[in-house]
Design a protein around this nucleic acid. Structure first.
Lengths: 338, 338
DNA sequence: TTGAAAGCGCTAACAA
DNA sequence: TTGTTAGCGCTTTCAA
């Protein structure tokens, strides 16, 4: 056998040998510990770059017990990745991880498979729909968790969410202030918090302002364009057609707009529409969509920061943050024609 | 001091103790080794679930030297995440990782910061724009790498890409077969392979079919809607206005369509448009966009599978795969008006 | 079928 | 300022 064995990865020992110091000293320069003589530091650095040494992170984690990575678990239902929502979360989390030098471990879940959260320092659950079990399981083994986009008050977990009720209120308030009295809503999926809260906030504001919300003016959608399409058709065929509609997502608002245009209904003159999300799609519709913008990116970023504090035990108490959405006015609304 | 110390994580030893076996036996059941008596196996399993034990993955990796995670590094330039391209890659990679039980470590890069690829089994580089150095560095320390969307023939690295030249040819072929003779192109960024190859394939096919491509019918865009907007304005103002245009991305095609409509040019009667990507935006334009679809999801999935083979030394030779795009016909093209 | 013990590559007392 | 050494939690010979 003259065969060579595969050359093994180079380790801290190889570096130590070449630099003629102990592995401890090498470890010290890796970790920027001050107590290393300039001479030794230089030699170690030379050896590191000559050998192209990169520390073995698994070994570091095992030795320190510290794991500087965060898991991001997202529900894997079809279409989620084509939603503006998911993209913004990934971007925000990614950005924050980058800034904090955290590894981002990305996990798409069906909600049922058990999750081994033991290889991450903490976990961010982007929404909890089907996967409450996974959150509980992570919590039970002591993994720091952060839930995004759910007011998870029933769960003894830290969370950060959008104030969806406020979002509904903002939409209602704007439409009312424009003078509308016959207002409709195409809701999101009401089994999601976002869907339910937007409707609730909207309703409440109408009530407070003494505007009637007729039952036939409430149409339950599910965020999909399909659902908005049929909702819009029914709404626009009403004998007493609403002069304004609040669609609980931009996709749905855009679809409603398309239906209206096909029907020859003039926007915003005959119909005002407000959406929710401020997705890029708004910008390229024929009529700029007025919408309620949610700080998704910021929410995701903030989630990472808080999780990081929790992991480092720098966070006091449960985090329960609620971020306000805000109105972006474009061209799709006006006062009703009298 | 009556204070309790934080309870430590439960380890294989705790399980062994409770099950009254050695840690070796516990390790065996974790790893599904056959040689464990049913009785012991049952006891270990009981202990594991009672204690909610989850193996420490860093320790496993250190002990085995095997790292079942793949890094995905994406360029971090602004806007990438709003591109259909990036999303499809993430989806495809995520899906394949899920199927192969690989951890996906997501890394957004500016292209300059050094990358420690030592904590992943292999790396997928989604496109290489600014970050050729990072690829070379990963390669030099022996990390298995896979480049996506670049025919990286100059780099001794495995890659998988789309046949962009074929994409250009397909678009040209379709337009020619419809009877067009005055055809224009709005190119992508020509400093990217995709941009350059699509143009080259397009040009070549026109030449082969003896169709003249006038210099003023070639307009260099950069995939952005802005660039397409000004390109379209110039193109449509030409004295001898083209009857067909191939825009090298759907976004650009859609923008060109918008400009045309504003100018009162009828699509497809007076102008045929073909795009590239088959992004979801196509479906919701007023006129369905005929486009060249690239198998991005499949490419990403395939990249993971190949990388996985490489890591496990089950791949013979360099992978150099090229996937064909295909034409999706919708409503934006017709024969030219004679 | 089982267990003792030697690492995997690194960090962190502790001693010098 | 430096080095020795004992782990971190797991896998894997090797013997029994």
């Amino acid at each position: 056998m003259t065969e060579e064995k595969a050359k093994k990865r180079i380790s801290i020992e190889d570096v130590a040998e070449r630099a003629k110091v102990s592995i401890t000293t090498v470890s010290r320069v890796i970790n920027n510990v001050a107590t290393v003589s300039p001479k030794n530091r230089a030699r170690v650095e030379e050896a590191i770059s000559a050998l192209k040494f990169k520390p073995n992170i698994s070994a570091q984690r095992l030795a320190t017990g510290v794991n500087n990575s965060v898991g991001l678990v997202m529900p894997g239902y079809p279409g989620i990745f084509h939603s503006f929502y998911a993209i913004e979360l990934i971007r925000g989390v990614g950005h924050a991880c980058e800034a904090l030098h955290l590894d981002l471990v990305f996990h798409i879940t069906n909600g049922f498979n058990p999750l081994n959260t033991n290889n991450v320092g903490g976990v961010i659950f982007a929404d909890i729909i089907e996967n409450r079990k996974q959150v509980e399981s992570a919590l039970s083994v002591g993994t720091p968790c952060m839930v995004i986009n759910n007011k998870a008050d029933d769960m003894d977990v830290d969370y950060i969410a959008i104030d969806n009720a406020l979002g509904g209120k903002i939409a209602a308030d704007y439409l009312i202030s424009l003078g509308h009295k016959n207002i409709a809503i195409i809701t999101g999926n009401l089994s999601t918090q976002a869907g339910a809260f937007r409707l609730a906030g909207f309703k409440k504001e109408l009530e407070a302002r003494k505007i009637q919300l007729a039952p036939e003016n409430i149409y339950e959608g599910d965020y999909s364009r399909r659902s908005a399409h049929s909702a819009a058709e029914k709404l626009f065929a009403l004998p007493n057609r609403p002069t304004a509609v609040f669609a609980c997502s931009d996709d749905m608002a855009l679809e409603a707009m398309t239906v209206a245009i096909e029907l020859g209904i003039k926007i915003p003159d005959e119909l005002s529409i407000v959406g929710f999300d401020d997705s890029p799609a708004c910008l390229y519709s024929s009529i700029g969509l007025t919408t309620v913008k949610q700080p998704l990116f910021e929410m995701a970023e903030q989630a990472v920061k808080i999780l990081h504090q929790i992991v480092n035990e720098k966070h006091k108490g449960r985090a329960k943050e609620i971020l306000p959405p805000k109105l972006i006015i474009r061209e799709s609304c006006s006062a009703p024609r009298s």
